[in-house]
């Protein structure tokens, strides 16, 4: 076989290059309104398709199942349920994290979708655990998913 294995890529004749590109992503029509509601009113909203009777979280501009434009927005509250979770122990470089971090997919009663976020203020986590969103103080909110600081066990 002509193919040659190398343990260190710098040992092969090489050229180092970059793929440089920076981006500015718009929040979009639905996203702008979703984050504005969190930032200004402290509310987590969903968008309801009246035709399919499905409430999507996070809200979307259209229903992917029937292609209706979604006009009805509803406050879904701040309480949800841990649908599944992971405990991350290493970061993207393979380095040990100082403190293991819990990431969970949180689903909201009677809705389709969910929010992926951190869980904090607890040492235990389980599937089915009730949690609630902790928002940053209103003067620190920037219309981003991180305006939700994390989720904690619900009272």
């Amino acid at each position: 076989m002509s193919l040659e294995k190398i343990t260190n890529p710098f040992n092969a004749r090489h050229w180092i290059g970059h793929m440089e590109a920076d981006y500015v992503y718009t929040l979009g029509v639905a996203g702008e309104r979703f984050f504005k509601e969190i930032k200004e009113n402290g509310k987590i909203m969903g968008a309801k398709c009246q035709k399919c009777n499905i409430t999507y979280v996070p809200p979307r501009m259209y229903c992917e199942k029937c292609f209706e434009k979604l006009k009805e927005w509803v406050d879904i509250g701040k309480k949800g349920v841990v649908h599944t979770f992971t405990i991350a122990t290493i970061d993207i470089n393979g380095e040990k994290l100082e403190k293991p971090t819990i990431y969970a997919l949180i689903k909201f009663d009677g809705t389709c979708g969910g929010i992926i976020h951190k869980i904090d203020e607890t040492d235990t986590v389980y599937i089915g655990m009730e949690v609630e969103a902790v928002l940053k103080p209103s003067n620190e909110r920037k219309a981003s998913i991180n305006d939700i600081a994390y989720f904690k066990p619900a009272k």
């Binding site: 996070p58 599944t84 979770f85 991350a88 990431y103 992926i116 976020h117 981003s144 998913i145 991180n146």
Partner: peptide, 19 residues
């Protein structure tokens, strides 16, 4: 908008599915 600001990592979403 929804996932990258959380710092998503590919291994995590598979961990969520596996769990």
């Amino acid at each position: 908008i929804l996932e990258r600001p959380i710092g998503m990592n590919l291994i995590w979403i598979f961990a969520l599915e596996m769990n």
